[in-house]
Design a protein around this nucleic acid. Structure first.
Lengths: 114, 114
DNA sequence: CAGCACATATCGATAGTCGATATATTCTGA
DNA sequence: TCAGAATATATCGACTATCGATATGTGCTG
């Protein structure tokens, strides 16, 4: 339950911040783009995740700005956050590779042994 | 929230069954092996997942057997289960690739702009 | 001037996983 | 020989990340 239990929405939040600081709403749009529209973060999910990740030292607030009378609160990845993201990405790749390997083994035997 | 919301433990259960039918306890050991010891399924997680996946038509009970006086209940993937697993694996790969791409962009700029 | 995009935030409900517990048999080591 | 671990199933309460809804306010567009 430490830092290693990361679900897709939270993973995508880290990924969205990996290439530079963004404000919350921009993260929501970025996550939607990253995931080809599959994941639309709820505001509740986003701000809860940012708070949680900040508490874990993976994300940090990097300033505020007012644009067109609207407040923007920026966040970016810490080095620890980048490390966790890299480790998680490796894990996803490994899981996907293992699943594919087994699916190929299945295909070799003939599908659905009814 | 249909069938597309799958967490790591459930994904690994599907993966464990992808290359052939197994009984519950064997799935637990297989998942541990697949994940290099990172994921040890709790019995509660496993049987809940199997029941849920069976209800979604992704897994099906494929028979019972008594070995050394102990009951074994076997499960295997349906074709639908194999398709979902393949789709999820693709998704993991895509998420991992996107994270890596952004982490490389970050590295290019110089880590942690203090 | 209605409605949507932008931008933040909180709150109750849902659901998957964990941790603990229960039951029963067989194998292993001291 | 007998305690403990491994095998094998299953249930239940607790935790928590996410969802869905709601709230508040500004600025742009039709």
């Amino acid at each position: 339950m430490g830092i290693e239990d990361i679900r897709e929405p939270t993973f995508l939040v880290l990924a969205a911040l990996a290439d530079g600081a963004k404000h919350g709403y921009a993260v929501i749009r970025e996550v939607e783009a990253i995931s080809d529209g599959r994941v639309t973060l709820r505001a509740g999910t986003l701000y809860a995740a940012l708070g949680r990740l900040a508490g874990q030292g993976l994300v940090r607030q990097s300033g505020e700005e007012v644009v067109d009378g609207r407040l923007r609160r920026y966040y970016d990845l810490t080095d620890a956050g980048a490390e966790v993201l890299a480790a998680q990405a490796a894990r996803l790749r490994q899981n996907a590779a293992e699943a594919d390997r087994r699916l190929r083994a299945r295909a070799r035997l003939g599908t659905a042994p009814a």
